[in-house]
Write a protein that binds this DNA or RNA. Structure first.
Lengths: 108, 108
DNA sequence: CTCGTTGCTACATTTAATGTAGCGATACGC
DNA sequence: GCGTATCGCTACATTAAATGTAGCAACGAG
C-alpha cells in the first residue's frame, strides 16, 4: 500500500488533498531540492557547476531533482546552464527571510 | 566516503560549510519535516493526531523527525502534545508566504 | 581528429522510509 | 482491584530512494 504516492501531478505527493501547499511542501521537502534553488539564486549554473556547488551530490539525484523542478516550472535549461525561471525567483524570494533566520538560529 | 554526513551539529548535514542556511536547508529538506512544522502551525497536536494529519506517515520516521526538530529547538513536547516553540513559530512565519505562492503556482 | 566539456544515464551499493506490530506508562470507568 | 483506551515511542522486516562510480552521445575549440 503506497503511502504518499497517488499524486495528481506526476511525481508530486500530497496533491490529493487538493491543497497546493502540500504538493509544494512535498516537492521542496526532497533531498537537495531546496539546496538547488538556493544555489541558483544568483544566476544560472551548468549542471556540473551545480553539482560542485551542491557538495558533489550524485548526478543521478541531481538530474532527478532538476527534472522535477523543471516540470514544476521553477527552473529551466538555458544556454548558460540551469537557471531559475521567473516563477523560480519568486519561490526563492518567499524563503529569503530564511537566511536571516538561519543566522539567528545558529546562535541559539 | 560519506557525503553530507560530517555535521558539526549531530544529525544535521551541511554544517561544515559554516553557513547556517545550509544546515537549515538540510534539516528542512528531509521528508515530512516541513509538513510537520506546517501541521503544528495552529497549535499543539498529540503524536497520534500529528500522524493522522500527516497522512498516516510511519511512526518511525515521524519520531525521528520530531526528535530532530526538538534538538533544533523548533518544537517541544508539552502537556498538550507537540507544539512549536517561539523559535518554531518564527520559522513557520518565514515561509508563510509560501502558502500564497503555492496557490498561484497551482494555477500555472 | 583529438581533447575537453556539456547534459544525462546505467547500475550496483548503501542508506532512508515505510508498514505493522507492540512495548511501558498513564488515566479513565467499573 | 480489572479492563480498556490512550499516550509517546520502539523493533524489525520490507520497500523505496539516494549514493558513488563509470561512462555515454553531442557539441565546440584547437
Amino acid at each position: 500500500m503506497p503511502k504518499q504516492v497517488p499524486a495528481t501531478r506526476p511525481g508530486v505527493r500530497g496533491s490529493r488533498s487538493g491543497r497546493p501547499i502540500m504538493a509544494l511542501l512535498d516537492l521542496l521537502g526532497r533531498r537537495w531540492t531546496l539546496r538547488i534553488v538556493w544555489e541558483l539564486r544568483e544566476g544560472a549554473l551548468t549542471s556540473r557547476a551545480l553539482r560542485t556547488a551542491c557538495d558533489e551530490a550524485s548526478p543521478t539525484i541531481l538530474q532527478t531533482r532538476l527534472t522535477e523542478l523543471r516540470e514544476a516550472g521553477f527552473i529551466e535549461l538555458t544556454e548558460d546552464g540551469y537557471g531559475l525561471t521567473a516563477l523560480g525567483r519568486e519561490l526563492f524570494q518567499t524563503f529569503t527571510p530564511l537566511n536571516r533566520f538561519a543566522e539567528r538560529w545558529s546562535k541559539r
